[in-house]
């Protein structure tokens, strides 16, 4: 889930991107440790708390969650109906609500469905929190530090920069062909591909043309002049970051311990 940076001054905003990535990874791992929805519910409460703590406008939050709501519902229903009781170990999960042939609605199915739903919810919310609270530049810094060749990170930045430009081009080309009476609702794969040729060709030509001009513009700005380019913002770890990293390492450790103790199963 890619969400724009939302400026702010919360602790999460101030944390170093690496600390945030550690915490994010730890939470992602924890999500998959337990099948009992209780633990994921705890995590969901935590991530929801963070979401509100960030002070995102409600409109933005709903724009994150709305698109996935139907998927969550479908998953919930399908799991509830398709997991027979012998998949589960703990008694609470073995209750059969309804059975006809292979078709079985069990408490375990419902609970497992809830876990899956909470997992997706947590993944979406946590990754949104990460991208909302971290400027793109910081991710790129990590990319640079991880010894990714500077060409690669430049490629990625430029790619991101030109997404909206290309979107505009796509719209312009679509409009230009629409007013000539083009129709895109053809039946059948081949006809459909053919219907899109009037869109694809000008776009391809435009991108080639743009890439040519960009190459010139890059040289014009001295790209490749010095062996090492200046980084504008150098990220550095502070005390808070270390506390965070240690805290999440402990939480993950505890999670692993509990998991091997057999806690949190269904």
């Amino acid at each position: 889930m890619f969400v724009d940076y939302y400026p702010g001054a919360t602790i999460i905003h101030r944390l170093d991107v690496r600390a945030k990535l550690v915490a994010f990874t730890a939470l992602m791992v924890l999500l998959f440790f337990f099948t009992n929805p209780f633990y994921n519910l705890l995590l969901a409460a935590f991530s929801t708390f963070l979401l509100y703590y960030l002070g995102l406008p409600t409109r933005k939050i709903s724009s994150i969650l709305k698109p996935i709501a139907p998927i969550l519902l479908i998953i919930m229903v399908i799991t509830a109906f398709t997991y027979p009781a012998d998949n589960f170990v703990i008694p609470v999960a073995k209750v059969v609500f309804y059975k006809k042939g292979w078709f079985e609605v069990t408490s375990g199915g419902v609970l497992y469905g809830a876990t899956l739903v909470l997992r997706i919810f947590n993944m979406v919310v946590l990754s949104s929190i990460l991208t909302c609270s971290t400027p793109l530049d910081h991710f790129l810094q990590v990319m640079k530090m991880s010894r990714l060749p500077s060409n690669v990170s430049f490629l990625i930045i430029t790619g991101i920069r030109f997404v909206p430009t290309m979107q505009k081009k796509v719209e312009m080309v679509f409009n230009a062909q629409k007013v000539r009476g083009a129709h895109f609702d053809e039946k059948g794969l081949f006809s459909r591909i053919k219907a899109y040729i009037p869109i694809m060709v000008p776009l391809l030509v435009q991108s080639l043309y743009m890439s040519d001009r960009l190459a010139v513009a890059m040289l014009n700005r001295g790209y490749g002049a010095a062996a090492r380019q200046t980084s504008l913002e150098e990220i550095s770890l502070t005390g808070l970051d270390y506390i965070f990293i240690i805290l999440f390492s402990i939480v993950t450790g505890v999670g692993i311990y509990l998991r091997f103790k057999g806690i949190g199963r269904l």
Partner: peptide, 26 residues
């Protein structure tokens, strides 16, 4: 063409593109 000579996602990054390529101090 204003479109194909801007590299930065924000204004600051874009102006910095040239000087950074020369490796000037921050």
């Amino acid at each position: 063409d204003p479109e194909t000579q801007i590299f930065g996602i924000n204004v600051k990054e874009d102006v910095a593109f040239g000087p950074c390529n020369f490796g000037l101090p921050k």
